[in-house]
């Protein structure tokens, strides 16, 4: 059984439908990418999974439990962490306090010290800036903090929404290295990215989303070989 499974999920905002009958699965231990042009519905997809918006119909099953329609704060407790688009840190809180908020769940709170050590080992740059306000960090550091904060909830599945957005090219490469290291720690992950070339090197499988529908799906290596994807997204 897959760790996460979406079955014909439809969702949107008000009258507007952003996702049409999307089906998708993530196996335990896998890294999966979702790519697609702007406005394809990638962010919406992650929002549905993490409970920020409810699916209109279709089902959402995580570790055998249906999460469709559950509010965001309950979904986290099931082990899904969401690193949202634009990072959404608490700018006036310090780095340490942001990480602390990541461990807000009772279960995570118990393991707070241990999680903090793990995150500090992964992101030494953050450990040095414990007392600094999150809003004063550089873009790359902020993204690290957003990822670190997500790890603090001790998730099984991490959703990344365009982690490389707004970063300088050098930083993008470093960030993908960091995500690779997170992956090696054994986390399952679903990554939305515009930087298709980089992300396909990182993941096992990928979905291509266009105007709210899954257009293509396959192993990362095969997908990056396909003419269509190369021309349209990888830019080769």
């Amino acid at each position: 059984m897959s760790m996460l499974e979406l079955r014909t999920v439809t969702a949107g905002y008000g009258q507007f439908t952003a996702l049409w009958d999307v089906s998708l699965a993530v196996e335990r231990g896998e890294a999966v990418a979702v790519v697609g042009p702007n406005g394809a519905g990638k962010t919406t997809l992650l929002r549905v999974i993490s409970g920020v918006i409810p699916p209109r119909h279709g089902d959402l099953v995580f570790e055998g439990a249906s999460l469709a329609g559950r509010p965001a704060h309950e979904v986290v407790a099931h082990g899904i962490a969401h690193v949202p688009e634009g990072r959404r840190l608490f700018p006036k809180l310090t780095v340490a306090e942001n990480l602390k908020m990541g461990a807000f769940l009772p279960r995570a709170r118990k393991a707070y010290r241990e999680s903090l050590e793990r995150v500090s080992a992964l992101f030494p740059a953050l450990a040095e800036r414990q007392k600094q306000r999150a809003g004063s960090l550089s873009g790359g550091e902020q993204q690290m903090l957003a990822i670190g904060r997500a790890l603090m909830s001790r998730p099984q599945l991490i959703l990344f929404d365009e982690p490389s957005m707004g970063l300088a090219p050098v930083m993008v490469l470093r960030l993908f290295d960091l995500i690779r290291r997170v992956r090696e720690e054994g986390y399952t992950m679903l990554i939305v990215e515009q930087n298709v070339r980089q992300v396909l090197k990182l993941v096992d499988r990928a979905y291509l989303l266009e105007v709210g529908r899954v257009r293509m799906e396959g192993r990362a290596a095969e997908l990056s070989e396909q003419d269509f994807v190369r021309k349209a997204y990888v830019g080769l």
């Binding site: 993490s50 704060h73 986290v76 969401h82 949202p84 959404r88 908020m101 990541g102 807000f104 909830s153």
Partner: peptide, 11 residues
Amino acid sequence: QDRGAMALMGA
């Protein structure tokens, strides 16, 4: 500072 982000933290 960010109501939505706090929900993503499980609160």
